[in-house]
Write a protein that binds this DNA or RNA. Structure first.
Length: 257
DNA sequence: ATGGCTACGATCCGTAGA
């Protein structure tokens, strides 16, 4: 089974590319971020016609997350229970006996800003939630835009980025605290080409220069990690006209016994 | 030179992303 995540940066603008990508990549489950779309306007029918049912937590202009799957994502829960937040950044549902948490982690804007403090508080709440969810669901996947580049090798120019938001030590510590729950970065389970990234700035010809960051991730609990056969980043959609600034990240798992 | 795109909702620019 193929599990994927993609920050589409507007479901409305990217729908044609999304439909093409679903037909080509054929994921069994797909986590989407930055829908920028309220639930009533979510293109449910178009996706269903393409063979995908959806759970959606939408928001106008900002944020918004969804989980697509071949059958209805079950037992969907929006948000982090007990963490009051207007921003629609988290959606959890069960797909093929696997608990899938779709996350759009805060950007943080700048180290020391209010949004940065919110990012760190948000990660602490996510950690508590995932700890509890892991107890209930040993087969757990957390997929999405984490807005953290875990290590310097996930950064095109570590010197230029040193100490900046997305790579600062408190953010990386928050990432490691998630991993310490017993979650594996699926991408790093395998040998990977150097300078593989999942996001490139629209400006300064970021993609042409491969000036990117690896900030989109699929984390897998131990039992899922054991079943993981491959993890890749598909740069093809980033090459299209009017692309999202993020590329899809995939993890391929052998079916459960 | 700290900018440069892109999307959105409201205009004819501001906010936000990363």
């Amino acid at each position: 089974m193929k599990l994927a995540t993609w920050n589409v940066n507007s479901i409305k603008v990217r729908l044609p590319q999304l439909l093409d990508w679903l037909a080509t990549a054929q994921p069994d489950a797909l986590c989407l971020q930055e829908l920028k779309c309220e639930e009533p306007k979510f293109p449910r029918a178009e996706l269903e016609a393409a063979g995908y049912l959806s759970a959606v937590s939408g928001q106008k202009t900002y944020n918004g997350v969804a989980i697509l799957a071949r059958s209805t994502p079950a037992d969907a829960v929006a948000g982090i229970p007990g963490f009051a937040d207007e921003q629609k950044r988290v959606l959890t549902a069960t797909v093929d006996g696997m608990r899938v948490v779709c996350v759009y982690c805060p950007n943080g804007q700048a180290v020391g800003s209010d949004k940065y403090e919110y990012k760190l508080r948000w990660f602490a709440a996510l950690r508590e939630y995932l700890a509890a969810e892991l107890q209930r669901h040993p087969r757990l996947a957390v997929a999405g835009d984490f807005n953290v580049a875990p290590e310097d090798r996930d950064v095109h120019d570590p010197k230029a980025w040193e100490g900046q938001v997305h790579v600062s030590e408190p953010e990386r510590a928050a990432w490691r605290a998630l991993v310490a729950l017993g979650l594996k970065d699926s991408f790093r389970l395998f040998e990977q080409p150097e300078k593989t990234f999942s996001w490139w700035d629209y400006r300064m010809m970021g993609f042409r220069r491969n000036a990117g960051l690896r900030i989109d991730h699929v984390l897998l609990s131990d039992s899922l990690a054991q079943a993981c056969m491959a993890s890749t980043i598909d740069k093809a959609p980033r090459k299209l006209e009017r692309p999202s600034d993020h590329a899809p990240v995939l993890a391929e798992l052998t079916p459960p016994h």
